[in-house]
Computed example of a mutant assay.
Amino acid sequence: MRILAAMSGGVDSAVAAARAVEAGHDVVGVHLALSRAGGTLRTGSRGCCTIEDAMDARRAADRLGIPFYVWDFSERFRDDVIDDFVAEYRAGRTPNPCMRCNEKIKFAALLERAIELGFDAVCTGHYATLVDGPDGRELHRASDEAKDQSYVLGVLTAEQLAHTYFPLGSTPSKALVRAEAAARGLTVAQKPDSHDICFIPDGDTRGWLADRVGAQAGAIVDRSGAVVGSHEGAHAYTVGQRRGLKLGVPASDGKPRFVLEVRPVSNTVVVGPKEALATAEIAGERYTWAGRAPASDAFDCDVQIRAHAEPVPARAAFVGGALTVTPAVPFDGVAPGQTAVLYDGTRVIGQFTIDRTVSAVPVTA
């Protein structure tokens, strides 16, 4: 096959590309430039798309003896990831920019161009497994549970999965990948993993958002609507947050309070007891299927609401056009804007963006 290897400059994508070459594929490496202003992205090991990362990717490609290119996707990244991130926070939701990057950039924009250029598939260093089932290609969890990235890949569609290649999915551990990189003479063998949001240079998400959303003072209220404090910008708060609330009125039971809801229209933050974070139901209208769609409008599944959360057994059903999920055990601290990924065992069924949540604790409690 003709393989386009997306090379971030990290050890995983370098080893994935090496395995594609070793498997006999015709491989070309590409690094995605996601910002035209280098200073707007993290430096060193904390990002995944800096000038330093591009140089690391080029050295790896040279070591593998494959052609290498840098493609400018900065405009698409700004429109589909950064602007979406700001819009979601402005609407009082908590987005996952890495999820959106996978959906809109790595497996939409990149894959579209790859197909146009005659490539058969895009190869990445994600830890997930592809299985050719009776109804087409299926996305499954990686063999290494600690590194499994099937959650952030839950946005992939059947068509995208048909042109995707994940060489690391069956590798038992990240340590083995690093050892393999060292044995292959790849200089990124011990490079630290990237983390945090790549387009926020100093890690100050609150300050970065304040510059773009605007900081407007407002009230912090309890579940009854009584004002218990004030804030300098609702965008700085997310469901489940405890620190930094600075409440002027203590709770009657003396227990700490947590953010339960952010209401952008009224610029209000709602707080309450920890037990009120228990969520009995989630729903969303923006959903996709990773392969075949469920055969029924109601089905049992496991649901994961964060990248490293434990999956929870649940019942999913379509109610009024929305995919609604009722967990067997309440979720803890779910925020609108998060992504819920549905599983059948190890297989990813699909995903949806959470638009609505229902607390398991009545307001009168």
Rank of each mutant, 00 (worst) to 15 (best):
Thr94Cys: 04
Glu180Ile: 11
Ala251Cys: 03
Asp120His: 14
Gly248Ser: 10
Arg2Trp: 03
Asp53Trp: 12
Leu139Ser: 00
Ala210Pro: 07
Glu232Thr: 13
Pro167Glu: 02
Ala33Met: 13
Gln304Asp: 02
Ala61Asn: 11
Val11Tyr: 08
Ala146Leu: 01
Arg184Phe: 06
Ala307Pro: 01
Val227Ile: 13
Arg137Ile: 04
Gly29Cys: 10
Gln216Arg: 15
Gly10Gln: 09
Phe68Leu: 06
Asp83Gly: 04
Thr353Gln: 11
Leu111Cys: 01
Phe77Asp: 05
Asp355Cys: 03
Ile220Glu: 06
Leu34Met: 14
Gly321Phe: 03
Ala295Val: 04
Cys48Ser: 12
Asn96Ala: 15
Gly254Cys: 05
Leu111Phe: 00
Thr171Glu: 13
Gly38Trp: 10
Trp208Asn: 07
Asp26Val: 06
Ala5Gln: 08
Glu112Leu: 01
His140Lys: 00
Ser143Met: 02
Gln241Tyr: 05
Asn96His: 08
Tyr343Arg: 15
Phe119Asn: 09
Val131Ala: 02
Arg90Trp: 01
Gly154Asn: 04
Gly320Pro: 11
Thr171Lys: 12
Val270Pro: 12
Tyr127Gly: 10
Ala276Arg: 13
Asp53Asn: 15
Asp53Phe: 13
Leu323Val: 03
Pro134Cys: 00
Val262His: 08
Ser13Trp: 06
Gly321Cys: 03
Leu4Gln: 07
Gly225Leu: 04
Glu22Leu: 13
Val227Arg: 14
Asp80Ala: 11
Thr40Tyr: 01
Glu275Gly: 04
Ala360Leu: 03
Ser170Thr: 14
Ala57Arg: 12
Asp196Thr: 06
Trp289Arg: 01
